[in-house]
Design a protein around this nucleic acid. Structure first.
Lengths: 280, 280
DNA sequence: ACAAAAATGGAATAAAAATTCCAATATATA
DNA sequence: TATATATTGGAATTTTTATTCCATTTTTGT
């Protein structure tokens, strides 16, 4: 930056800093831009971390952090960090204020926010419950089964379709061959027709169990294709078809159930499978 | 302290620490008692301060602070300070710590159960963070925008496709007309072509932003179709196209980010929209 | 009141962290 | 394409911060 520069900036509030970062962002050199993004995405890390630690996480050199601070008009990194710390200090009273605001009979803000709280709460509860219901040995067996398979067929419909769609993304990223049965044009059975014994099916279904999923899983089991199932109770139709099954009971809020625990479990299966394959 | 002591304490949560401090308080020597009181009255100062600074404010010697920490069973002041910092950071310090421990220190194999813990932890962390980043007024505005729309077009690709797919399910259940842009046959632009001013677009995109999503959202904005966006930073290309945008920063574990917070937010939007319509 | 043990203050030392500096690389300008 | 200019990486240095140590004071138990 040819030294100098800096003109009149160095905002002393977090909001001011964010504004400056946003306005300058496009004109910044690569590494500084990287830091700007990182700082806004991980403000607590900047508040508490050390130059070395933050630099590593953000993928830059320590010196770049100091330069970054100076280019914004601060004395050095420590000065910049102060802004982030001040903001965190303020957050406690802020939060209390916000809760107070929530109760105010101003109507819809309140309601919208409590909806969000409700869904977040249900998700957190589901995650917590899962600790008790998924047994490590079963999980390990499920991973083994998937790891041995040539191709993994992903089966799930309606409410749980998002989970299985995400599996397709994750397996792809991990280099594991997987086929998403998406039922386009109601071609589910045909999409699964090529599956053989050396493959495996990962099926997910919760009450009210979508008939397609149960039927296709049963068909696969009859053809001796290994089936790994994620479902919500021992009464699920998937259980009879499955070689290994994992139990997940999602909590609900209003009419809608969370999917958070299922996602976490699905991701663990995907990464576990990829790791297992890398080993052997 | 005749050296020794310490027995089995060193609580790793703030609440545990407070309990210990209160129970021991009466039996403590003068200066340590002074510090116990100070620490509980000025926790943020302990979280952010330096040994010298805190010592001065509390009216003791720096060495006393170190002694204080050790008498509670910690390695030293820095260790004690960590407890205070974790508390300020969020209410899930255990998760953060656990995540740190789980992150494979290179080549180290993480077994199945800790994978699951890791993903569950990332999800919980994301949910908790969302409390801070989504502002109730913005959420209410987003809901209003969607409630006014005739048809809602759902836009999201790759990693976030599951979220938008779930929105399609939820809106359908709730009797809200919504169209999922699923890009089958790369027909995304055509699927969105019928959208008009009286409609609205709900778009989701996180880093690395899928170009289609940004492009289609920008196109919609140019045609004066209201756009509600869920994204992860102010730098997102969606921000420029959006009439209202909501910020969600998902935590990651290994190479994969959680989607839990996004799901909770999407569900809140869906239910909020349906309720708003039912009202008037 | 006396000895023994504990607690304290403060300087000395060690450890950790921030900052500076310069050579190497990349980017823009003519 | 050549030259100037900006950017970056990384080691060296300085500064800050935590910790240790020991002499002195205070407290405790007899």
């Amino acid at each position: 930056m040819s030294e100098a520069e800096v003109t009149t900036e160095a905002p002393d509030s977090f909001d001011g800093l964010r504004a400056l970062l946003l306005s300058r962002h496009d004109a910044m050199p690569k590494r500084l831009k990287q830091l700007a993004t990182f700082a806004l995405e991980h403000p607590e890390e900047v508040a508490f971390g050390t130059v070395a630690g933050i630099a590593e996480h953000a993928g830059v050199q320590p010196s770049t952090l100091v330069r970054f601070a100076k280019s914004l008009g601060y004395d050095g990194f420590s000065h910049l960090q102060q802004i982030f710390r001040d903001r965190l200090r303020e957050r406690f009273p802020d939060y209390r204020e916000r809760l107070k605001g929530l109760r105010s009979p101003e109507g819809h803000h309140v309601h919208a926010a409590s909806l969000l709280e409700g869904f977040a709460g249900a998700a957190a509860l589901s995650l917590d419950r899962m600790r008790g219901s998924v047994r490590p040995e079963e999980l390990a067996r499920a991973i083994e089964t998937l790891a041995k398979a040539d191709t993994i067929y992903l089966l799930g419909a309606r409410r749980v379709f998002p989970v299985i769609a995400y599996c397709a993304y994750a397996f792809g990223k991990l280099g594991v061959r997987a086929i998403l049965i998406d039922h386009v044009g109601q071609l589910g059975p045909e999409q699964l027709a090529t599956a053989a014994r050396r493959d495996a099916v990962l099926a997910i279904s919760f009450t009210p169990y979508a008939p397609v999923t149960a039927d296709l899983a049963a068909g696969a089991a009859q053809r001796n294709i290994p089936v790994v199932a994620i479902t919500d109770s021992a009464f699920s139709p998937l259980v009879t078809s499955a070689d290994v099954w994992l139990e997940v009971a999602e909590a609900d809020f209003g009419a809608f159930r969370s999917l958070s625990a299922s996602f976490a479990l699905a991701m663990a299966l995907a990464v576990g499978t990829a790791e297992k394959r890398a080993e052997g």
